[in-house]
């Protein structure tokens, strides 16, 4: 019973992180139709930035978000203008190939810059508290809280602000949005900026909890795809739900598959993904464009 409760709590905490990790991926896909295979690499960059700031200035990873968010917003903005705007509105596979190339280039660039050794961010509060017989790791609980705050902020931004409305308009109907005077390229660049910044922030928050190395990205990209298939495109409640499902599944596998379960995160999410796509090509919550749909 205790083990079950513990697994559930750990799963929820992990799920919260997954939910905030997937936001950038899911919104870029939903708004621009770009499946960003370099997603995990931006997370990796965020983690390295947090590590660097921690090492050089002793800056707390959560405090360093103040620097990382604007900086990575700029990176995303520029990347969109230079590269991604060329492939938006192109077939999915083309964007896949381009972002795949970007991901390989980034991961290997970081390998050259920082070599392949794993790095750690050892914060002082890296302990855990017991509550009603359940262990709460402090950092992961903070991440969970931060994830909820970020999601509420993003939700309010998309729903209430003028810019957020433009982004949603562009996601739903590009032509119509253009007609009513939305500058699509600018909206896209801002969207990309926000998404890349969020992804890097997720990486920064993650940095105290796991080793940082250049090739840490792809598993996160794949998990992002799975969560998106679970929760639907560009929807924040969907991301939360999908993140929770994957987080809990993963923890259960590692709790109940003796010995080797701990390291099967990607395998779990891969099996989940293929099952979902075969049973429901449009995703559990719908919204993934069924690629083989025939226009009649």
């Amino acid at each position: 019973m205790d083990q079950l409760l513990q697994a559930l709590v750990s799963g929820l905490l992990l799920g919260g992180f997954y939910a905030v990790m997937v936001l950038g991926f899911s919104v870029i896909w939903g708004v621009m139709g770009v499946i960003n295979l370099a997603h995990g690499e931006f997370l990796m960059i965020g983690a390295y930035m947090a590590w660097g700031l921690f090492r050089l200035f002793g800056m707390d990873p959560f405090a360093s978000l103040v620097l990382i968010l604007p900086l990575m917003f700029l990176v995303g903005y520029l990347l969109q203008i230079v590269l991604i705007n060329r492939i938006v509105e192109r077939p999915h596979l083309m964007t896949l190939l381009v972002t795949f190339g970007v991901s390989i280039a980034l991961a290997n660039l970081f390998k050259i810059l920082f070599d392949a050794d794993p790095r750690n961010v050892a914060v002082a509060y890296n302990g855990s508290v017991q509550l009603a017989g359940v262990t709460f790791p402090i950092v992961k609980t903070i991440i969970f809280g931060a994830a909820l705050v970020i999601m509420v902020c993003l939700h309010l931004f998309l729903q209430r602000s003028r810019l957020g409305k433009s982004i949603r308009a562009a996601a739903q109907n590009k032509t119509a949005a253009r007609i009513v005077g939305v500058d699509i390229n600018r909206v896209y660049a801002i969207t990309a900026g926000i998404c890349i910044a969020l992804t890097a922030a997720a990486g920064a928050m993650l940095s105290p909890t796991q080793a940082i190395f250049p090739f840490m990205g792809p598993p996160f990209t794949l998990k992002a795809v799975t969560i998106t298939a679970l929760g639907g495109l560009g929807r924040i409640p969907g991301a939360l739900m999908g993140g929770m499902v994957l987080g809990i599944t993963e923890i259960f596998v590692s709790t109940y598959v003796a010995g080797i379960g701990t390291n099967l995160g990607v395998a779990t999410s891969f099996v989940l993904l293929v099952l979902i796509l075969i049973v429901r090509p449009q995703g559990i919550m719908g919204g993934l464009r069924p690629i083989d749909a025939e226009a009649e």
């Binding site: 499946i35 596979l93 795949f100 598993p219 794949l222 990607v266 891969f270 993904l273 293929v274 796509l277």
Partner: peptide, 18 residues
């Protein structure tokens, strides 16, 4: 189909590495 096959195969690769 299409991108989903590509991603699923990428998933196979990363999962097998794991």
């Amino acid at each position: 189909k299409g991108p989903y096959f590509s991603i699923a195969m990428l998933g196979t690769l990363v999962a097998m590495r794991e």
